[in-house]
Amino acid sequence: MASHLAEESETGSAGLPDSGDSLDLSTFEQILEMDDDEDEREFSRSIVYGFFEQAEATFGKMDKSLSAAESQKHQGENELANLSSLGHFLKGSSATLGMTKVKDSCEKIQHYGAHKDDAGQPTNMEDTLLLKKIKATVATVKVEYKEAERILKQFYHDPDAHTA
């Protein structure tokens, strides 16, 4: 059993050569360990692809919230809270998958939306500035997410991987 597990671990890390710091391998391997079949990787695949959908949907909601905040000046406060909770939501799942960069950016969005600075300290920045910062961070996190997505799709031999 032990040797089988060690083997699994090796294939797990060997399959993800170029993850860099987009993906924390030790965290992601925990999920790979849960796969019953190392070729099919049904469980982790469904988790990861479920996360892709979740992330895209969350980004969509973030964009919607941002444009709503821009068009209705007085709704800024509500949208900030909404963005904060969207950031928190994606933070949890990205952290569990080991997407460290995405997680950190989501945390920033959560902080800004809750009137806090990058480090989570309360700030009296104006709503418009906070929204601006969130907008920039959303743009960043999308890039970081794309990179992680590319690596993961490659790992799962997704035909989209090369076009993405």
Binding site: I31, M34, I47, G50, F51, Q54, F89, G92, S93, T96, L97
Partner: peptide, 8 residues
């Protein structure tokens, strides 16, 4: 509430 965390 997070489906990914819940499933894992």
């Amino acid at each position: 509430d997070d489906p990914t965390c819940r499933r894992i």
